[in-house]
Design a binder for these strands. Structure first.
Lengths: 239, 239
DNA sequence: AATATTAGTGTTGTTTATACACTAAAGTAT
DNA sequence: ATACTTTAGTGTATAAACAACACTAATATT
């Protein structure tokens, strides 16, 4: 609420915190879940890696700011974006009071047009289980929370599809689940469940490989409003 | 992240949004889920009801600010508190740019020592299905989201216990679930499930009523780290 | 003593999960 | 050409969880 206590129309005479929007950007690279980090060039935390972000402008909403950051860092638009949490401890930035609204972004594997992958860049993809810890600020905490959210939402949303290209095989989809959940899933059960859900649309296309060729499928966005997709592989869901 | 773009140590020369913390306070009153609202005394939205909240101070964290608001409005401490979402649309406050970090609080039924219940007070409890809509600002949206979160977390957390007094019967607990979920649950299945979960501790106390006296139980906080409590009555969980 | 009221248990059929064995279609080696 | 390897995909048997609903229990009221 904005006031039952009197509040001035001119807010500038009050001490205000700064507000940033940070975006934890995930993508699947070489079948492994990666996160995009930037290397800091000055104090504090000089040389350490951080989650990309920046100050919010007065004429953009939080989500607009997140999309702007995302596009600045990766050049991609139209990606999955969701608000994660707002971090506001008093001393999380040693310079001044900064409140950070964190977002999660999922970038599709085939949109890897991003030119940030060379070794000397100050913007780089890291596998989520080989992070350059400790990260700057409280970003270890933010990233851990982002992963936890990702895992938890995987099972009751269609979030995994955001990481896949237009056409994919069922075993590739299974691989994403395994990547994010960090555990093996049963092939037969996965096939059964994903098919029963009706969430996939068969295409006439196949992909050849070393063994038997595989059928390619497409994510069904239209879905007649019928049965929701609920994927649950474990019972201890918790965030 | 706070900067790959250069950032001044003196932040005051930039235009900053104001940051408020709003707390959606739920409680169970007369076996019905209620929410605490305050009536606005001035423009904008004069006379309309709003979620209690206020500006954040530079020397307190977000959660500390939420607890302060909560205590100012209700006089209670030690309540369940959880961050809900951060609302930051550009024009949600017509006066200036305000970003609001919303929290949910659950106040136990027996801590209703609060003196806000008289008819003419500008602070009042409303049943969640009889709200004085439209609320001020975007508070309809915030409240709807809070309810949705409450329902969704009910099934996989121990959140419901936060609304109950120290001792309670199993059917009272069932009643809370029904209140929040908005649907009837099967008595037998509820008994079985809650008992199997091991989350309740039996006490020697009984309560007399009109029919057969009822056993009183207590929420088991210690819980040997064993099996997690997962309550799921429907399959279409989604937020 | 019968009835109403609230508390609490048991039973049964159905669905869903889990583990794991099996079949299928391609390439590669002998 | 035949057997072997590799990856894809199906089937099945058992166990666990769920949902509906009938039943028993302990008190107060008529």
């Amino acid at each position: 609420m904005q006031d039952e206590h009197p509040v001035p129309y001119d807010v500038s005479k009050y001490q205000l915190p700064a507000v940033t929007v940070d975006v934890v950007i995930f993508s699947l690279i070489n079948r492994t879940l990666h996160v995009l980090l930037v290397q800091r060039k000055r104090w504090p935390f000089e040389g350490q890696w951080a989650i990309p972000g920046g100050f919010i402008r007065l004429d953009e909403s939080l989500e607009e700011a997140a999309r702007r950051e995302l596009e600045e860092e990766t050049g991609v638009r139209d990606v999955y974006l969701e608000q994660l949490y707002t971090f506001g401890d008093v001393h999380r930035d040693p310079r001044h009071r900064v409140i950070s609204v964190a977002y999660i972004a999922l970038v599709r594997a085939d949109v890897q047009t991003i030119r940030v992958s060379d070794e000397n860049s100050d913007v780089r993809w890291f596998p989520v289980d080989h992070l350059p810890t400790p990260l700057a600020f409280d970003h270890d905490q933010i990233l851990a929370y982002a992963l936890s959210r990702l895992r938890s939402k995987l099972e009751y949303t269609t979030l995994a599809f955001q990481l896949l290209p237009e056409l994919f095989s069922i075993l590739e989809l299974k691989h994403i689940y395994e990547q994010i959940l960090g555990e093996k899933l049963d092939k037969g059960n996965f096939y059964r469940k994903i098919k029963e859900s009706g969430i996939l649309e068969e295409t006439p296309y196949m992909r050849e490989g070393r063994g038997r060729p595989t059928r390619l499928w497409r994510f069904r966005r239209d879905r007649p409003g019928d049965k929701q997709f609920v994927f649950r592989w474990r019972e201890d869901r918790r965030e």
